[in-house]
C-alpha cells in the first residue's frame, strides 16, 4: 500500500428528508481543520435519492468537493447499497481519512466498510487531530468504561476511519456563495440483487424524549441511592421546566430509560443550564455535557471529579439541598415573575 496515493479528508454526509444531518456539518468543520493542516482537499460523499441540491450547503460549510451518488436505489439507507457506493468511490479516489457521524447509520456503514476494505476504525471519537507530515490521524475517545482517554492510531492502512460523536465538533459558520466541485458518480446496482428491503418507515407519534434539544437539564446519578431517590431529579426538572438526564449507572440500574442517558454511550447535550446531582463525573459522562452553558454540581464528595467541570459546586446532601432549591425557586417565580 503506497500511502502517497491516498490524499484528502472525506466526510460521509448523512441526509434525511431533504436535509443534511447536523453531525455531518460539524464533521465538515472538524475535517476542514485536518485538511488545512495537511494541505489537502476536504470532500463530502453524499449518497441518496434527489440529494444533488444539498451540495450547495456542503460547500458553504467547508467542503471543496462533493462526490454524489444520486440514484433511486439509495432512497433508504441500506448497509449493502451505501457500502458498495462508498467502497467504489474510495477505491477510485483514495482519501487518506474518512469521518462518519457516530449515529446509528454512520456506525453501521463505517463498521461494514472497514471490514471490507479492510482498515482500522475508531468508534465514538471525541477529539481529532492529524500529524502534519505523516498524515497519521490521532483519534481520541474515552476508553475502558470511560474513566480515561485513549488515542487510537491506524499506522499501516489507508484510509484511516473514525466515527465521531454528534455535538462534540463545531460546524464552521456557513459562507454564503462559497462553491466547490461536484463530482457525479453512478454505480450499477440492481434492486433484485439487494438482499434487504425497507418495507416501511414509521415515525413515532408519541412524544419522544429529546434531551439534546432541552435548554435546561437536570441530571441525576447513582449518588441518589435508589429509584425513589431519583424522583428528586424529576421534581427539580419539573419546577425549572427542564428535561431529565441521567448517568450511565442510573440507566443501567433501570431508574430511567436510555434516551435520558448523557455521555459517551448516551446523548451529547449542550443545554444552557445543566444540573449534575449525585453524579461523580466519569469522563464518559463529562464528554457528553461539558459544553453546557452553566454547569451546577451537587455532590456529597468534595473530591468528586464533577466539581472540576462545573461552574458552581455545592458540596452537600442532595436530599437537603434540592428540596430547598425547589421551594425557593417556586417562591422566586411567584415573587417577581421574572421566569415564565
Amino acid at each position: 500500500m503506497d500511502f502517497q496515493d491516498y490524499k484528502g479528508v472525506w466526510v460521509f454526509i448523512e441526509q434525511k428528508d431533504g436535509e443534511v444531518a447536523s453531525v455531518s456539518l460539524e464533521l465538515l468543520g472538524a475535517g476542514r481543520k485536518l485538511a488545512d493542516k495537511r494541505g489537502v482537499e476536504l470532500a463530502g460523499i453524499l449518497i441518496g435519492e434527489n440529494v444533488k441540491n444539498l451540495t450547495k450547503t456542503l460547500f458553504e460549510y467547508g467542503a471543496d468537493t462533493v462526490y454524489v451518488y444520486d440514484q433511486p436505489i439509495f432512497k433508504h439507507y441500506r448497509t449493502e447499497t451505501y457500502m458498495k457506493a462508498l467502497l467504489e468511490c474510495t477505491e477510485k479516489h483514495k482519501p487518506e481519512i474518512i469521518l462518519y457521524g457516530a449515529t446509528s447509520t454512520g456506525k453501521d456503514l463505517a463498521s461494514a466498510v472497514a471490514t471490507d476494505m479492510p482498515t482500522g476504525l475508531t468508534a465514538d471519537t471525541t477529539e481529532l487531530d492529524v500529524e502534519e507530515d505523516t498524515g497519521l490521524l490521532l483519534a481520541s475517545r474515552p476508553a475502558f468504561g470511560g474513566n480515561i482517554m485513549a488515542t487510537i492510531l491506524c499506522k499501516k492502512y489507508r484510509p484511516q476511519m473514525a466515527t465521531v460523536r454528534a455535538k462534540v465538533m463545531k460546524a464552521l459558520p456557513p459562507e454564503p456563495g462559497r462553491i466547490g466541485k461536484v463530482v457525479e458518480e453512478t454505480i450499477s446496482l440492481k434492486e433484485e440483487d439487494i438482499r434487504t428491503k425497507v418495507l416501511e418507515i414509521v415515525k413515532e407519534t408519541v412524544k419522544k424524549v429529546r434531551i439534546d434539544e432541552a435548554d435546561i437539564i437536570v441530571a441525576g446519578g447513582k449518588g441518589l441511592g435508589s429509584y425513589e431517590g431519583f424522583q428528586l431529579v424529576h421534581q427539580l426538572a419539573e419546577t425549572l421546566g427542564g428535561a431529565v438526564g441521567a448517568s450511565r449507572d442510573v440507566v443501567e440500574a433501570g431508574w430511567i430509560d436510555h434516551p435520558h442517558q448523557v455521555g459517551q454511550t448516551g446523548v451529547t447535550v449542550t443545554p444552557k443550564i445543566y444540573f449534575a446531582i449525585g453524579i461523580s463525573g466519569a469522563i464518559q459522562h463529562i464528554v457528553g455535557m461539558k459544553n453546557s452553558g452553566l454547569i451546577i454540581a451537587i455532590n456529597k464528595d468534595k473530591e468528586a471529579p464533577i466539581f472540576q467541570t462545573c461552574h458552581y459546586g455545592i458540596v452537600g446532601d442532595a436530599f437537603e439541598v434540592v428540596p430547598i432549591l425547589i421551594e425557593q425557586f417556586k417562591k422566586a417565580i411567584s415573587r417577581d415573575k421574572v421566569i415564565k
Binding site: A143, P305, Q308
Partner: peptide, 16 residues
C-alpha cells in the same frame, strides 16, 4: 489495524 498509542487522563479543568 488500530493500536492504542497513548492512554491519558484529560487535563483537569480549573473547576468551579
Amino acid at each position: 489495524p488500530t493500536i492504542v498509542s497513548r492512554v491519558w487522563a484529560p487535563q483537569k479543568p480549573a473547576g468551579g
